[in-house]
Amino acid sequence: MKVTIIDCGSGNLRSAQKAFEKVSSNLYKNTKIIITSIVEDLEESDFIVLPGVGSFSDFINGMKKINGMQEALNYYVIKKGIPFLGICVGMQVLATKGYENEETEGLNWISGSVRKIKTNANLPIPQMGWNNLKIKKNHPIVNNISEKDHTYFVHSYLFDVNDETQIIASVDYGVDITSIVAKDNVIGMQFHPEKSQKVGLDLIYNFISME
């Protein structure tokens, strides 16, 4: 079983790798969790993970600097249907467009846009900390996850998803914030499952149990 974690130059991917190692060893015999910026490494992946920190535009620009990466992602994820997980900004770039720093085109895998969180509730921005998930829709990714479960968020922008049926979970932060999106084999999480202790590891388990 091979999990490919894509490095678009945005820092800490070690935690994601360790979390996948911990979870996958309970589920598969031979597991290989790699971090890579090399397009060819996507070959023969069973799962593809795109973690992201930083801004939408920086992240997309970082991806574009890797020759052929965006095309390869489109090929393996959209054409071949390899299960995919985008984390934080890695989820946001699934959108059609982002408005952080400047208007930037996303991967456009899930129709919608990414814009700054605006609440009337006078809450600090970024949303930083643990919030409990509101499950909107039954989906294998939220197996055994309840509304009492918390995950760790740190973000100032939210994903405004056009088709509400693609929203699996949200959290309340003055406004409803999309927290898990899903469309076919593509999953996105706004929070950091690799930083969300047991609940996060359970969500990763659900992801790598997907077929």
Binding site: N12, V154, Q197
Partner: peptide, 25 residues
Amino acid sequence: FMPLTVGGGIKGLEDIRSLLKAGAD
């Protein structure tokens, strides 16, 4: 598997990068 903040004696962007790479959030 939880958020980790690290501080103390940071002298430049390179220090920040190496701590983030080591696993700090």
